[in-house]
Each structure stands twice: as structure tokens, then as C-alpha cells.
Design a protein around this nucleic acid. Structure first.
Length: 462
RNA sequence: GCUCCCUUCGUCUAGAGGCCCAGGACAUGGCCCUCUCAAGGCCAGUACACGGGUUCGAAUCCCGUAGGGAGCGCCA
């Protein structure tokens, strides 16, 4: 049987990392087994769904490279189908009209709570003998089995049993006729041939109801896998303060999609001691049976570390193309050429994000350096300036402007002067980059080029 | 309140009865390397929630307790 998975976000808020992780798991599972991955937008809540949120979901998935084979489907475009299924259920007596008012239901729930019972619909409209009240548009409820139990054979939690007596007759169509979430999910998963449902464990309690409806419709329930929740760094529920922002915020902050995916796949899943995974390795090794049961806290430091690891291993040309965009955002126009790639190679192991890399690389491309006053005060003393002026003559005499020649000239100069390398390198670094931090000085000068180097030394020694 | 789920270092996790007085990774501290910052290498500290069983032997199995979470909507 070929695998079909799906990601079914509702466009009522942001696509955040919790959603991304279940999307990732579903995508990986489909890719691993050569199956299909469906994207389905669950927008039945007309009140809260927005086109902007749909757009964010689509852009986020595209940025992450979680491509779908089917869809995006929109539940709002399938209302005719849902109505058809509801009519069938009604005809077979598996669903019924309920005329209870909201006030009546509220009173019922309040009474149950007072008796320390679980609030649930008591089924009073199941066998309505009196005529329905005039002018009331009824809702449609699913007739849930009264006894027995439903066993959810969950791939991460094992067999989870629910007594049917705990489940009530849920509403599948509102009084305006629109279908509700739990029902749409069931019809869609059935119609779309979904074989594996991987989602957050906040849905575990919905699963027995869905299974009952699937059975009533004569369908075979899919395999379920409920992954745990992602918590904020402080162990409490994820909020906007930590990670519950759009995934696109991670793009803005300079993360690589593969790094974010790598971080997320390891949150609640493992493959031995391996920490760093390429996209191909994730696909090769991902398995539902290795998903953990307990919730995990989001750790920004580890994400940062992984991002750097991925930058250190990424394809240089690809990184250069990305860096160009980030440079542009801070007002630097850099051609995507061999030199930009060389800058990437020099900076990748000393940057945690592309934003940081762009910031630390702008001095390579700007006309004038932005001098850090503290660095200048400390390293560009009158003696240092005099020394740099002398050293610039050596640089001017180099036959080839290569890292090796620059390095030799620097050590020769330092040796003759009886100075440590750092005594020459630091003032030089400040003069050409404006700060005390840069790639190795010989590499920095090579990348900068002879003209710019000499001009910048001249600018501080004049 | 009721139902369901979860519980190994600060954090992510390894561990499927003896290989574990618990391994790896992030973070932290120290050392090495070193022209800066990094990267890299080495070292250190810190965990089986608690209590009972079962067993020759339990982080691993069973039962309780505690703590945390989810669901209980004409929301998804």
C-alpha cells in the first residue's frame, strides 16, 4: 500500500514551529516511502480564517522546501461534498437533527459540571417525539455508539482506549448548514486516501470520534501517530515571546531552512547520537517509531549552533546566493561572483546566521569603513599608525596579491621589528575592517584587494 | 471536575532487565591551538520525579503518589 500523508493547517493564525514539525514529519514519511504528501487548508471557520494566513502558510512551506504532491485543497471549496455525506448519514440514521438552543446546552453543561461530571451532550434529540420547535434551524449531530470502546492504535503512544460512554454526539453541521472541523477531517482523509495521520497530540482526544465516524462511513481508519507538543524555552506553552511566530521570521533572522528542519526533526525524534542531518539523511533515516512521547522545550541556542553547522557544510554557491540577499537588505550591493563565494568561505565558520554574516562582511564591499571608535582608540595609536604606514610599503611591493605572500610579508615585518604578529595584525585589522574582528588578516587583505587595503591604511595614517 | 497523555543532566536526547555508580549533543567553566573572532581538540560538573513491588539483578516490567500537559465549543 502506498503511503499518503497530509499537513492540514487552519489559516487562523501563524504557521509556527509546532505546525512545521508535524508538517515535516508527514513530509519526511511520505518522501521516505515514496508516497504522496498532501497540503490541505482547513478553513471551515469562516470567521477566523484569513487569506493572509493562507499566504503565510504557502510561503512558509515553500521557503522550507516542504513541497506537496497534491493540493493545496481548501475545505471551503468542498462544502457540497460534505453536505452530500451528511445527507447520507442522516438518511441512514447515523446522524440526526438537534434543535437544542445554545442556552439549553449551556444550562445542561453547567448542571453536569455542578455534579462533577464531564460536560457532554446527553442525546436528548436522538429520539425527538414532539414536533420540532418552529423557526429553529437545527444542527446535525453524529450518532456516536453508546457502549463499547474505541482503541486508537497509535504508532507513538501504543494502544489508547476510550469508552464510547465518554464520547457524546458531536455536531457535524452548524445550524447554517456549514460542516465542522472534526467531520471535514474525516471526510477529507477518507476521500483523499490518507494512510498515515501524523499530527500533534492535542488531537489524540479527537481521534476516537473520528474513528467512529470513519467506521460509520464504511472507511478504514488511517494509521495515527500523535507527536508531542513543543514548549517554550521555559517549559511552558509556546507563546509569541519565544517561538510562536511565523516560520518566515526565521528566514528574516538568517536561518537556513535545512537547519531549522534539522533542529525540528530532532525535537522529539532521534537517530542514535546523530545531531546534524542533511535533508537527504533526514529522509533516509526518519521513522515514526522513533518519535518520542514527551513534550520538548524549544532551545534557541541549539538552533543557532545547528545553523552554523549547516552553513559550514552548505554548498558555497548556494550560500553566496543567499548572502547576497541579506547584504542587499542592509544596503550592500554585492555581485554574486567568485569573490562573494570566497567571502562566504572565510565567514561561514564565524557566523551563526546569514544576518550576522552579512553584517560582518559589509566592510568587504563598502567604499569606506565604518570605524568602531573603541577599536580605533585602542589599536590605532600614533605608533601603530606609523608602523602601518611603513608596512604598507611592503604590501605595495608584493609581486602577487595572495594570502601566502601577504602572510610572509607580515611575519617578516613583525620579525624585523621584534614584534609579535598580533601587534601588527590587530591595528591592520582595525584599519581595513573598522573592527577588531575579521577572518585571518592575510585572508582578509587578500579578499579586500591591494587597492582597497592600501587606501584604507592611507586613510588612517594620513 | 471528568477522560486521555507525559515524566533520564538547565535543554534536546541514547537507553527496549545485567554492556549503565547511565552515553552523545547544546549551553556553562577550564585548558590547548592562535594575528582577532570563530572553528576544532581535550577536560569538568550536573539527570533515571517519588514510594512500593516483581527479579539473583530495574532507568528499563507492575502498582500507587506527585507534578506537568491536552481534550471536554454551532473553534480548529
Amino acid at each position: 500500500m502506498s503511503v499518503v500523508t497530509r499537513f492540514a493547517p487552519s489559516p487562523t493564525g501563524m504557521l509556527h514551529i509546532g505546525g512545521v514539525r508535524t508538517a515535516l514529519y508527514s513530509w519526511l514519511y511520505a518522501r521516505r516511502h515514496g508516497g504522496r504528501f498532501i497540503l490541505r487548508v482547513e478553513d471551515t471557520d469562516l470567521e477566523r480564517s484569513t487569506p493572509e494566513a493562507v499566504q503565510v502558510i504557502l510561503e512558509g512551506m515553500a521557503w522550507l522546501g516542504l513541497d506537496h504532491d497534491d493540493g493545496p485543497y481548501y475545505q471551503t471549496k468542498r462544502f457540497d461534498r460534505y453536505k452530500e455525506v451528511i445527507a447520507g448519514l442522516l438518511a441512514q440514521g447515523q446522524a440526526y437533527h438537534c434543535y437544542c438552543s445554545k442556552e439549553e446546552l449551556d444550562a445542561m453543561r453547567a448542571a453536569q459540571m455542578a455534579r462533577k461530571e464531564k460536560p457532554r451532550y446527553d442525546g436528548r434529540c436522538r429520539h425527538r417525539t414532539v414536533a420540532p420547535p418552529a423557526g429553529v434551524q437545527p444542527v446535525v449531530r453524529f450518532r456516536n455508539p453508546l457502549d463499547g470502546e474505541v482503541v486508537v492504535e497509535d504508532r507513538v503512544h501504543g494502544a489508547v482506549r476510550f469508552a464510547n460512554a465518554e464520547l457524546d454526539d458531536l455536531i457535524i453541521a452548524r445550524s447554517d448548514g456549514s460542516p465542522t472541523y472534526n467531520f471535514c477531517v474525516v471526510v477529507d482523509d477518507m476521500d483523499m486516501g490518507v494512510t498515515h495521520v501524523i499530527r500533534g497530540d492535542d488531537h489524540l482526544n479527537n481521534t476516537p470520534r473520528q474513528i467512529n465516524m470513519l467506521r460509520a462511513l464504511g472507511a478504514t481508519p488511517p494509521v495515527y501517530a500523535h507527536a508531542s507538543m513543543i514548549l517554550g524555552p521555559d517549559g511552558t506553552k509556546l507563546s509569541k515571546r519565544h517561538g510562536a511566530v511565523s516560520v518566515l521570521a526565521y528566514e528574516e533572522q538568517g536561518y537556513l531552512p535545512d537547519a531549522l528542519l534539522n533542529y525540528l526533526v530532532r525535537l522529539g525524534w532521534s537517530h542514535g547520537d546523530q545531531e546534524v542531518f542533511t535533508r537527504a539523511e533526514m529522509i533516509e533515516h526518519f521513522d515514526i517509531d522513533r518519535i518520542g512521547k514527551s513534550a520538548s522545550a524549544f532551545n534557541p541556542e541549539k538552533l543557532l549552533w545547528l545553523n552554523q553547522q549547516h552553513m559550514m557544510r552548505a554548498d558555497v554557491r548556494d550560500l553566496a546566493t543567499r548572502l547576497q540577499v541579506y547584504l542587499k537588505r542592509i544596503g550592500v550591493d554585492a555581485p554574486n561572483d567568485a569573490r562573494l563565494s570566497a567571502v562566504v568561505e572565510a565567514q561561514r565558520e564565524r557566523s551563526k546566521t546569514l544576518v550576522e554574516m552579512a553584517k560582518n562582511s559589509r566592510f568587504f564591499f563598502r567604499e569606506n569603513v565604518e570605524m568602531d571608535p573603541a577599536a580605533a582608540a585602542k589599536h590605532l595609536t600614533p605608533e601603530a599608525r606609523a608602523m602601518l604606514q611603513e608596512f604598507s610599503a611592503s604590501l605595495n611591493d608584493l609581486t602577487d596579491w595572495t594570502r601566502a605572500q601577504i602572510h610572509d610579508a607580515l611575519t617578516a615585518f613583525a620579525t624585523v621589528r621584534g614584534l609579535g604578529l598580533g601587534k601588527v595584525a590587530q591595528p591592520l585589522r582595525v584599519a581595513v575592517s573598522g573592527s577588531t574582528v575579521s577572518p585571518p588578516i592575510d585572508q582578509t587583505l587578500e579578499l579586500l584587494g591591494r587597492d582597497a587595503t592600501l587606501a584604507r591604511i592611507a586613510a588612517v595614517t594620513a
